[in-house]
Amino acid sequence: MKFGLVLKELHRSENELAHHLLVISERHKVDHEIYHLARDLSRWSQQHVRDIAALAGNYGENLDPEPRSEAGLMETLREKGSEMVGRRPETGMLLLRDLREVYLQACGVSADWELLAQAAQGMKDQDLLGLAEKCHPQTIRQMKWANGKLKESATQVLVS
């Protein structure tokens, strides 16, 4: 059965999203809503990683329950860097690029959850379906957040 691949891919993509949200949080520390919200939303993906890993054993997959961690030094460096360049207009373009990336990543994760939910229905697997029903709506909220911030920020960055 190819289902293990779906789980592995979802585990990977949620881990990536969690990590990237943390990275943009640090990189845009002076954009306070991005800083705080990206951290909050990263926690959702981190929890998804744990939840996926907890079920993976039932399908013969051994997935790490610990979300990919952050190196402390890099974090501080990025935050300091953010504060130093925060008064320059170019940071706006970087923000748009990062939000666009989060949006696309979250879309990918969302598609992965759809694959998993379809498989779960085919296998009549309630546990798996329950997991998708719990996690997928949060992925969609992450997507909408990134998209909303992108729209909200774009005009000022692009026409100023």
Binding site: V30, D31, R87, R88, Q156, S160
Partner: peptide, 19 residues
């Protein structure tokens, strides 16, 4: 009306980045 109005904390941020 292309996006929500800019709230004051965001205005302070735009003043900070010089826009």
């Amino acid at each position: 009306h292309y996006s929500p109005p800019t709230h004051v904390m965001q205005m302070m941020r735009y003043a900070e980045d010089g826009s």
